[in-house]
């Protein structure tokens, strides 16, 4: 971490709690497909909040971003390459 600046850790925790409530409420009241979309969008936001603030990624050099983004892309490609065989089979 460069410099002494850091986020408000408690505020981030409050946001994480609020987002858990949002996804739980969405799963209870929304139609299934809309709820799924919202729940995974919220999970993505939660993951970003943790990685950027608690793991201090937002203060890190681009090389550290590469350590996160490159393997994520590989995992995504690996998954998508399996779709023609397992998901899009008529």
């Amino acid at each position: 971490m460069e410099g002494k600046q850091h986020p408000n850790y408690f505020l981030i925790w409050v946001w994480l709690m609020v987002l858990v409530v949002v996804s739980v409420v969405a799963s209870l009241i929304l139609p299934k497909s809309l709820a799924s979309f919202l729940i995974f969008a919220v999970a993505g936001i939660k993951a970003l909040l943790v990685i950027l603030n608690y793991m201090h990624l937002k203060y890190e050099k681009p090389l550290i971003y590469a350590f996160v983004i490159v393997p994520l892309l590989f995992a995504l490609i690996l998954t998508l390459l399996l779709f023609p065989d397992f998901v899009f089979h008529g």
């Binding site: 350590f67 996160v68 393997p71 590989f74």
Partner: peptide, 19 residues
């Protein structure tokens, strides 16, 4: 980074099988 591919592969295969 290596852990991302471990869990990414596991979650990816779960999604493929489920979908």
């Amino acid at each position: 980074a290596s852990e991302i591919t471990v869990f990414g592969g596991l979650i990816g295969s779960y999604l493929v099988v489920r979908l």
